[in-house]
């Protein structure tokens, strides 16, 4: 399945019932140089909209929200030593967590690539 986005600039891709979550290229541009990412604990169950992670830039801390609810199965521990992956490859190696989806219908109100592109262009 293809990538989907939230209005808060999280992205999610789905394989079977597992969602991989991160922040968008647009988001990392707004954040600036990422110096630390606090990822969630494996095993935690999140509702859609719960705080999933915190991204710290030189200047400020920003919250990242769960684009979909479910149990955290795996987190990207590489971000601990290399938080700049969020800047360099936000929608690839800069992923935050993999979540076991509890309710796939929560994906329905997320934006697809084209809708998100239009949305971010409107924010400029």
């Amino acid at each position: 399945m293809s990538i989907k986005y939230t209005k808060d600039h999280e992205w999610v891709t789905v394989e079977d019932d597992i969602a991989t979550v991160g922040v968008s290229v647009y988001a990392q541009e707004q954040l600036g140089d990422v110096v630390f990412v606090e990822v969630p604990e494996v095993g935690r169950t999140l509702d859609k909209g719960d705080e999933l992670a915190v991204v710290e830039s030189v200047k400020a801390a920003s919250e990242v929200y769960a684009p979909i609810g479910g149990e955290v199965l795996e987190v990207n521990n590489d971000l601990e030593d290399n938080p700049s992956q969020v800047n360099e490859d936000a929608q690839g190696s800069g992923w935050f967590a993999k979540v076991k989806i509890s309710d796939a219908s929560e994906l329905d109100d997320l934006m697809d690539e084209a809708a998100y592109k239009e949305y971010t262009e409107g924010l400029a």
Binding site: G32, D33, V35, S57, V58, K59
Partner: peptide, 12 residues
Amino acid sequence: PVQYPDGIMKEH
């Protein structure tokens, strides 16, 4: 201006 295109890290 809080930053320019280079960003805070590079400016610093």
